[in-house]
């Protein structure tokens, strides 16, 4: 951590709902131990959880890379799944492509991306059909950071 950044990476397993969310909850725990503002911890936990779950549902899992510094949490979730054909449509609340089997379990309500957008301070999605998706979430830990970055 010589450069003032904590880096962690997590493997997101495919199709395993029982351990989906482990990466986001360990990031949550880290932020709590760092003494981050509870509201920011919540924003990070929810947006990361949604991205993690998307990778589980749609993309056979993936990897999450997390960087925490004094000012922000940066999360990059990469998968090699089917990609998102129409990102604008996917950003709409309630739009879902999750199969029935997933929806029956109470997931896949079409709130994943909208929730990420709502809770992340910065959200960047790069996606290519057939190749995969990279979701980048930034949550600022100090209030005056938005202007600086």
């Amino acid at each position: 951590m010589s450069d003032g950044i904590i880096r962690k990476s997590f493997v997101i397993p495919a199709n395993d709902f029982t351990i989906a969310g482990e990466a986001s909850s360990s990031v949550k725990k880290m932020l709590i131990q760092l003494g981050a503002d509870p509201q920011k911890v919540k924003k990070t936990a929810i947006s990361m959880y949604e991205a993690e779950l998307n990778a589980v549902i749609h993309a056979n899992g993936g990897v999450a890379e997390v960087e925490i510094d004094r000012h922000k949490v940066f999360i990059r979730i990469k998968d090699e799944g089917p990609g998102i054909p129409d990102l604008e449509l996917a950003m709409q609340e309630g739009y879902t492509t999750a199969p029935d089997s997933i929806r029956e379990m109470g997931f896949g309500a079409g709130m994943g991306l909208p929730n990420m957008k709502r809770y992340a301070d910065k959200l960047e999605i790069t996606t290519e059909v057939g190749k995969g998706t990279v979701v980048e979430i930034t949550v600022f830990l100090t209030d005056n950071e938005k202007e600086d970055h």
């Binding site: 951590m1 003032g4 904590i6 709590i32 131990q33 760092l34 003494g35 509870p38 510094d69």
Partner: peptide, 19 residues
């Protein structure tokens, strides 16, 4: 709120401790 889990009151020191 009583933050019992916090490692240090200074964020930078808390980062080092967490690492």
């Amino acid at each position: 709120y009583r933050p019992i889990m916090k490692l240090d009151k200074d964020f930078d020191i808390a980062m080092k401790k967490l690492e």
